Simulated scan of single mutants.
Amino acid sequence: MKKFLFNRYDKETLKKKVLEDKRERRVISFYRYVKITDPIAFRDVLYDSLEDLGVLGRIYLANEGINAQFSIPIGNYDALRKFVDFIPELKNIYFNDAVEDKKESFIKLAIKVRKKIVADGLDDSQFDPSNVGTHLSPLEFHQALEEDGVIVVDLRNNYESEVGHFENAILPDVGTFREELPLVEQILEKDKDKKILLYCTGGIRCEKASAYLKYKGFEKVHQLQGGIINYAKAVTDHGLKSKFKGKNFVFDDRLGERITDDVLTVCYTCGNPSDRHTNCANLGCHVLIVQCESCSEKLLGTCSEECKEIVSLPEETQKKLRQEQRKQQKYPTHHLTRKLVGK
């Protein structure tokens, strides 16, 4: 019988299946820049075996490599290691285990073939992406942070760094990695001879960024091996005080791992201290915001009174609004609401 190499269930069914599965799960991420000649065939091999192992999550493949974030039943962890090491392109790839495990972090397995495993906006033919910066272990990075004159750069988006970052780090105010590299180059223009420490969530963005900065003439580029995830585990294991403060934003349903008790930002709605990320419950908006539980309760999980008004409407009316919105992108959702409900 032929297996389906894609998900066949709706979201509610998937959530139910995950919650009914009593097995504990481990959240893992890994990446590697490596030549994959046929990503589509590679995808089919991965999907078939990973589904059998109970893997749920997102994996991106491209000719340049693999970028994976997923969860797996803990009992299948060793089997996953053996399977991955059997594949030449993935042999001995580093598993970055999450700081926190949440059962419903992922509800399905999706393996997608893309042009790039990270949207960086770079033309790789212009430089050598394999000529990366010096990798520092978490403990080496921890020590390097104390050196005089060192420059620390956060290579994540602004919505990630606002809830957690290393002390004294440069936090570029951008919403995408594509925008970030030119800005970082501009910010560091006069510091090409200084020691630069790069960090990101799990390390993948630092790989490409460090190679790009070296190509642009920066002499002392270093990067945190395994990113914030690896650092958080290492300082905990060694009883050290974390120099990363707050939460580490993650791209699954958790939206964050607590590293320290520091709260570095405020609720977008009321201005009180909060680092609770959530997406607006109005699917026609779905904007990512920081919002405290009190405001979320008052606004029914939405970002504004306008969106609260929308989610209070019958589901069929909401669907019509979203359809209308797709046709008329120039109009904000709340404008269409007034139009359709006669306000």
Rank of each mutant, 00 (worst) to 15 (best):
residue 280 C to V: 11
residue 261 D to H: 01
residue 89 E to W: 05
residue 126 Q to P: 03
residue 187 I to Q: 10
residue 205 R to L: 10
residue 219 E to P: 01
residue 202 G to Y: 06
residue 121 G to R: 01
residue 329 Q to E: 07
residue 52 D to Q: 09
residue 231 Y to E: 09
residue 212 Y to L: 15
residue 275 D to M: 01
residue 91 K to S: 13
residue 239 G to L: 06
residue 98 A to S: 03
residue 38 D to Y: 09
residue 20 E to A: 15
residue 218 F to M: 09
residue 219 E to L: 11
residue 290 V to N: 14
residue 3 K to W: 01
residue 137 S to H: 11
residue 323 Q to L: 15
residue 109 L to S: 03
residue 174 V to P: 11
residue 145 L to I: 06
residue 245 K to R: 05
residue 190 K to G: 08
residue 151 I to P: 12
residue 74 I to Y: 03
residue 180 E to W: 00
residue 4 F to G: 12
residue 49 S to Q: 13
residue 336 L to K: 13
residue 89 E to Q: 15
residue 266 V to D: 08
residue 3 K to S: 07
residue 179 E to G: 11
residue 150 V to R: 05
residue 137 S to T: 11
residue 184 V to M: 06
residue 46 L to D: 03
residue 338 R to F: 15
residue 88 P to D: 12
residue 242 S to Y: 10
residue 163 V to G: 06
residue 266 V to R: 08
residue 212 Y to G: 09
residue 333 T to R: 15
residue 306 E to D: 13
residue 308 K to N: 10
residue 303 C to E: 02
residue 302 T to C: 12
residue 286 H to I: 01
residue 157 N to W: 02
residue 228 I to T: 14
residue 111 I to V: 04
residue 165 H to Q: 04
residue 183 L to K: 12
residue 80 L to V: 05
residue 37 T to I: 14
residue 275 D to N: 15
residue 42 F to K: 08
residue 276 R to G: 02
residue 172 P to I: 01
residue 254 R to Q: 11
residue 250 V to H: 02
residue 28 I to T: 02
residue 241 K to R: 09
residue 193 D to G: 11
residue 166 F to V: 03
residue 217 G to V: 07
residue 194 K to E: 08
residue 178 R to S: 08
residue 341 V to M: 13
residue 302 T to K: 14
residue 103 K to P: 04
residue 17 K to C: 03
residue 342 G to K: 09
residue 77 Y to H: 03
residue 3 K to F: 12
residue 306 E to N: 15
residue 156 R to S: 07
residue 296 S to H: 04
residue 4 F to W: 10
residue 283 L to M: 07
residue 320 K to S: 01
residue 324 E to F: 01
residue 48 D to N: 04
residue 184 V to R: 06
residue 147 E to H: 11
residue 256 G to Y: 00
residue 203 G to P: 09
residue 99 V to C: 04
residue 40 I to T: 14
residue 98 A to K: 00
residue 42 F to P: 09
residue 320 K to R: 13
residue 343 K to C: 08
residue 17 K to V: 09
residue 162 E to S: 05
residue 146 E to K: 10
residue 27 V to W: 00
residue 221 V to F: 10
residue 20 E to D: 12
residue 109 L to Q: 04
residue 180 E to P: 00
residue 169 A to D: 08
